[in-house]
């Protein structure tokens, strides 16, 4: 610095060693950093889901078509969701017991959504189809295995979910997630990612 900065005298000697060349270096580095950041942003953001992918991030499902005691599975943007039509027995077992003792405490009602009439519809349970352990898709009544608690069983590492989709046994840390959804009519739901 001193070699090149010698021609530009320090300003009034007040700031020893600080020269106009220092200012130029700092200003140039700042502008360069700003430019690099401005260019980097689009190149990172292009990795995000594109507009057409985002446009496919919700789906409407007719829940009246789900057979009693079974479920249907839908893919939204490649992600699986379970829509289960529970029997009165399954509903009763979901509501029974002390939920505070569970690994991920939640009441059955907290896992339901109000319908168009303002009441919960306990017959229809909508959950994510992704095991909270490592992302496998648990098997359910349609695959002939519901686990020890009547809900779902994850074949990858043996997590058991109950009829409310709550984890009861195995390595999964959380209950099956409840997606964002709403009743657009008494029988139609709209699930969004």
């Amino acid at each position: 610095m001193s070699e090149h900065g010698s021609k530009t005298a320090p300003i009034a000697g007040a700031h020893a060693g600080e020269t106009r060349r220092d200012f130029i270096h700092i200003a140039a580095a700042t502008v360069t950093a700003g430019g690099v950041a401005a260019v980097a942003w689009p190149f990172v953001q292009q990795l995000a889901p594109a507009a057409d992918t985002r446009a496919l991030s919700s789906a409407e499902v007719d829940v009246s078509k789900v057979p009693l005691g079974s479920e249907i599975r839908v893919l939204i943007g490649g992600q699986p969701f379970f829509i289960r039509h529970r029997t009165p027995g399954e509903i009763a077992s979901a509501k029974a017991g002390d939920t505070a003792q569970l690994r991920d405490p939640a009441t059955d009602d907290s896992r339901l959504v109000k319908g168009a009439d303002g009441n919960l519809n306990p017959a229809i349970l909508v959950t994510s189809g992704t095991c909270t352990h490592l992302g496998c898709v648990p098997v359910g009544p349609a695959q002939g295995s519901v686990g020890e608690f009547g809900g779902w069983y994850c074949p990858c590492h043996g997590s058991h979910y109950d009829t409310s989709g709550r984890v009861r046994k195995g390595p999964a840390p959380k209950n099956l997630a409840i997606p964002k959804y709403e009743y657009s009519s008494p029988t139609m739901i709209k699930i969004s990612l």
Binding site: P42, F43, Q45, Q46, A48, A50, A51, D52
Partner: peptide, 8 residues
């Protein structure tokens, strides 16, 4: 559809 795809 791609974010900033037009630019790139």
């Amino acid at each position: 559809d791609i974010d900033f795809g037009w630019l790139i």
